[in-house]
Design a protein around this nucleic acid. Structure first.
Lengths: 261, 261
DNA sequence: CCCAATTTGTTCGTATGTATA
DNA sequence: TTATACATACGAACAAATTGG
């Protein structure tokens, strides 16, 4: 990766915002504007620090935070890269369903295999009021609706209803969706240049509807967890609204702090 | 806080474990063994670094991590203290229920008032197999059982069933429990010297039972979220097992990452 | 209100260790 | 083996917040 292509501007002491915060913003800006896409290897620390006119220590403090936020990935001897959703780490960062362990034998945690996703529907539609409010678009704006079913260890564990703006994801087709080699967030990133950085999730209990019950192979009205997720990119801009109905007969919804921060 | 009272031993370069990790362990050891209890102000960085025979920068790196893990609290100009559960921050660190916002008007987040806790039961009993496995004790060992009901903004939002070892919390009485000025974790800390550092939570959906339905003022069988929490202290030792039944009619269970890491 | 002492926060620069290709 | 890049460690200087006089 060429240092000039990044378009970095030297930062200056303001007495208000610390230098390392400004460095962080500069790096984020370079990534957001696509001057330095996912997977790219950044110039080494000495070069970056020189370009930004700060010491290496200050640069490191900025990148430290970006690494913690999963924006960058650093590896000793190799270099620093912009994180991609193909890194395994990310998959579980946004997937919070795990097989329920046997409490009497908690030593052996059940191994969670990769979820198998089955697409049950793909449509173009108009956004409802709520969807529009969540996605920062107008009611009636065109959206894609995706219905997925997730299997884990042979069990039907979740049904996802995904809503995304068809302006943001122009040209998405069912075929491209089905042909994706990795997760849907990796698809967002590689095909549409949209990187999901974090997600807000709120969970509530709800009985399964006729639709979700059929999808999960459960009787109608079985208590299930309904997770409402808003996926956010840079600047906390919402890019996806997803409602997951989780079958908790044999699996749990796991809050992230449990995963050892 | 006297530097000698901390019982810190100088760390040495091993070539295996980084110095700052050893410093961290030393500080943790001093806190765990009670040589430096919650709320205590540590000696300043220069003194600490000298006692541990490392540079200030190395000491800071260790304390940085402890601050991130909420073990220490640093404030410019004041000093570094061992975290207590009286800090407001902690209350919400372990309380994950929020009023559901209006999705059409998400600007104005509903203000979450402090939950009002009502004790509905306090008993001495024997641990079940599962409780024993979770708490690292033997089945039949004596435990306290506490039944609490939580009100938020006038709504009954949760019923907690709390199980703790009565060996660990020897001398706990209903009166001392009811008279606590702050949260129950602050009580654990101030009265029994047990600091809850983090918690593992797993959630599942379940219909309310006769008992929980009555507690929450809901019809029997209403879908609710059942949160199983194990609270951990130093060394990830379990100290409390709690099953919360959350009424999600007007409130959500919020995963922690949503709270802006 | 301001001053001075104390303590953490930020920034710099350098040297050396360690993983990678 | 060598070169590269990140990881760790040191020490110094100044800025900013807090407290007490």
């Amino acid at each position: 990766m060429n240092i000039d292509a990044l378009g970095l501007v030297p930062v200056t002491a303001t007495g208000e915002v610390p230098l390392y915060r400004q460095v962080k913003r500069e790096l984020l800006r370079s990534i957001e504007t696509g001057r330095c896409g996912p997977g790219k290897v950044l110039p080494n620390e000495t070069v970056l620090a020189a370009a930004l006119e700060v010491s290496v220590g200050t640069l490191r403090r900025a990148t430290d935070e970006l690494v913690h936020e999963h924006v960058l990935v650093r590896r000793q001897g190799k270099g620093t890269t912009v994180a991609t959703h193909t890194h395994d780490r990310f998959l579980f960062h946004f997937f919070h369903v795990e097989p329920r362990p046997d409490p009497l034998d908690s030593d052996r945690m059940p191994v969670s295999h990769y979820p198998v996703v089955e697409c049950m529907g793909f449509d173009k539609d108009k956004a409802t009021l709520i969807e529009a409010a969540v996605l920062w678009i107008r009611a009636g704006d065109p959206v894609y609706r995706i219905d997925n079913r997730l299997k884990l260890d042979g069990h039907l564990v979740a049904h996802d209803h995904i809503v995304i703006s068809s302006v943001l994801f122009k040209g998405l087709t069912e075929k491209r969706l089905l042909d994706r080699p990795s997760t849907i967030y990796a698809l967002y990133q590689s095909e549409f240049g949209i990187t999901v950085l974090r997600a807000q999730e709120r969970a509530r209990a709800a009985g399964t509807t006729r639709h979700t019950a059929r999808m999960l192979g459960l009787p109608v009205g079985t208590p299930a967890i309904e997770v409402h997720r808003v996926a956010l990119t840079f600047g906390d801009k919402p890019v996806e609204y997803r409602v997951s109905t989780v079958n908790t007969q044999h699996h749990d919804y796991v809050s992230l702090l449990s995963k050892r921060l």
